[in-house]
Design a binder for these strands. Structure first.
Lengths: 118, 118
DNA sequence: TTAATGCGTTAGTGATCACTAACGTATTAT
DNA sequence: ATAATACGTTAGTGATCACTAACGCATTAA
C-alpha cells in the first residue's frame, strides 16, 4: 500500500513561507485547532488549513482529532530535522559575510572590492 | 520612473529553495560567473541564471559585468537582512522543541502525550 | 569582415502555489 | 427527530515556479 507521500518535501523550503513560519511559532506555545490559528491571520480558515496540511506532509506538525476539532501540534522529530537544515544552511561563512553589512552601514563609501586592511 | 521591484520579496522564502541555498554557499567563497556556478548543478545554465536573477531581486546577490560574463557575488546588506530573518525564525522556543527529537529517539516508546516526569 | 563559439537571458511549458468559494460532516439547539 | 451552526477539507482559480528550448549578443577564429 502506497502512502500519500511520494517525494519527501524539503522541510526548510516548506517552513520558510511567511504564513507557515508564523504558524510554527503559534504552535510552539501549545497545540491549537485550525480555527484558533486562523484567528491570527488575515486569510481564510481554508488557507490556514491548507498551510497546516502542507506542514504535516513535510513532517513538521501532527494533528489530533477531538470532536469536530483538529488540534495541531509541532512534531519534535520534524522540527529536529528542520533545525539541522537551518544550521547546515546558515554557516559561519555566511555569517561573516552578513556581518559586513554593519561595516558597510558605517562607512558609507561603497562600490569597492573587499579589501583587507593590511 | 518605476523600477522593476514592485513587491519586496521575502528574503528567507527566496533563499530557502534548495538550489538557491547551494548557490549562496558557492558564492560565499568567491564571486563567480553563471556558467561556473552552473557546472555544480544538474540543471541547465538557464535554470541557474533564473535562480540568480531571483536572488538578485530579493537583494541577496549582486552582479558585475565583465566581457561576456556576469560575475555574481553575495550582497552583504541583503545577507544581513537574511540573517535577521533566520534568527527571528529560529527562536529558543523552537529550539527547545526540536531538542525533544533526541529524547524521543532514545526512549522508543511513542504515542503518548507530553507528560512531565513528576 | 564573416563564421563559429560561448555567454546569459527571454520564450514557452507543465506543475505547483496560495487563495476564496463551495462542500461534507459533526455537534448543538429546537 | 430536524434545523441551525461550527469546523475542517475539497473544488476551482489565477498567479507563480522551475525548468528546457530558443534566442540575442559579445568575443574569438578564420
Amino acid at each position: 500500500m502506497i502512502t500519500n507521500v511520494l517525494f519527501v518535501l524539503d522541510a526548510l523550503e516548506i517552513a520558510a513561507e511567511p504564513n507557515r513560519r508564523r504558524l510554527l511559532h503559534l504552535l510552539a506555545g501549545s497545540e491549537q485547532a485550525v480555527s484558533d490559528l486562523a484567528a491570527h491571520f488575515d486569510v481564510s480558515r481554508s488557507a490556514v488549513s491548507q498551510h497546516l496540511l502542507l506542514l504535516e506532509k513535510a513532517g513538521l506538525v501532527m494533528a489530533r482529532k477531538e470532536g469536530r476539532n483538529r488540534y495541531y501540534r509541532l512534531d519534535p522529530q520534524g522540527m529536529g530535522r528542520l533545525r539541522d537544515l537551518v544550521s547546515q544552511f546558515w554557516t559561519n561563512e555566511l555569517d561573516l559575510l552578513a556581518s559586513d553589512a554593519a561595516v558597510l552601514a558605517l562607512r558609507r563609501g561603497n562600490q569597492h572590492q573587499q579589501q583587507p586592511d593590511h
